[in-house]
């Protein structure tokens, strides 16, 4: 799937029916003479275009009554396996769809398709591997779904604890997966990610007996960045903790859709 939209704002402006050469300032531009030229005030968010597209996605999800989860983590945290186990427990009672962001393989999508849920793979390799999914990528991917036939859309973001945190995609909730094979200090190193998320999974806890990882310290670090954030200790391998995690998803869905 081509990933050019975030990098091509002109095309979007046409689509939105805007004339092309207009200043994007919210109020009138003020220009003052200074030495060697004039200063033009703009005051505009760089990610304004992404934010507006995300808002549009969010409106569409609300209209179609679809709950959207944005699942993020570093590579190798067990995000895909967790998602496989999650889908096994939710499908077919809850009608799920999945968007998988990956730099260049379809391996994850193939694994998830076993669940029976529709899975759309988004490869971001056009520019040598984009590091996140932006709102327009989601909008494009949505063309492959019948939103009327979905209750829950899970977006498995590109494995990365930095960039995805910056890009709103129109989701309802954001979840970060941290595995016990990573450092306890990850939350402190990537504060934006842990601030921006609504829940965290501490995954691969079946490995704890074999590691020096201090799960309590990891939790304390998460709460230092985001006090009171729900943290679920899970093992996608043994199934430990998954019931609580799935209960959280169901509760949040109920909050949104009232169902």
């Amino acid at each position: 799937m081509p990933i050019e939209l975030f990098l091509c704002p002109k095309a979007r402006h046409h689509k939105e029916g805007h004339p092309h050469h207009h200043p994007h300032t919210k109020g009138p531009s003020t220009a003052t003479r200074t030495s060697g030229g004039r200063e033009i005030r703009v005051v505009r968010r760089v990610l304004d275009v992404n934010d507006r597209m995300a808002a549009r996605n969010r409106e569409l999800f609300a209209e179609k009554n679809v709950f959207v989860l944005n699942l993020m983590s570093s590579p190798g945290s067990g995000k895909t396996t967790t998602l496989e186990r999650t889908l096994e427990r939710l499908v077919p009672e809850i009608r799920c769809g999945v968007i998988v962001g990956d730099i260049c393989t379809t391996a994850d999508a193939d694994r998830l398709a076993v669940s029976g849920a529709p899975v759309v793979q988004v490869n971001t390799d056009e520019f040598g591997g984009d590091c996140h999914l932006a709102a327009h990528v989601i909008e494009n991917a949505l063309e492959n779904f019948d939103l009327e036939a979905l209750d829950l859309l899970i977006v498995e973001n590109v494995g990365n604890l930095v960039c995805p945190a910056e890009f709103d995609i129109g989701e309802d909730r954001r979840v970060v997966v941290l595995s016990v094979t990573e450092g306890e200090d990850k939350p402190l190193k990537y504060p934006l990610m842990f601030r921006e998320c609504d829940a965290a999974l501490l995954n691969k806890v079946d490995l704890l007996p074999h590691l020096d990882f201090d799960a309590d310290l990891a939790e304390a670090n998460i709460w230092q960045i985001h006090p009171d954030m729900p943290v679920f200790r899970t093992s996608a391998k043994t199934g430990e903790g998954l019931d609580a995690w799935i209960g959280w998803i169901r509760d949040r869905m109920r909050e949104k859709t009232g169902a």
Partner: peptide, 12 residues
Amino acid sequence: RELDVHSFQLID
């Protein structure tokens, strides 16, 4: 959380 273009200096 800012990531804003505030202004720019322009010469004709």
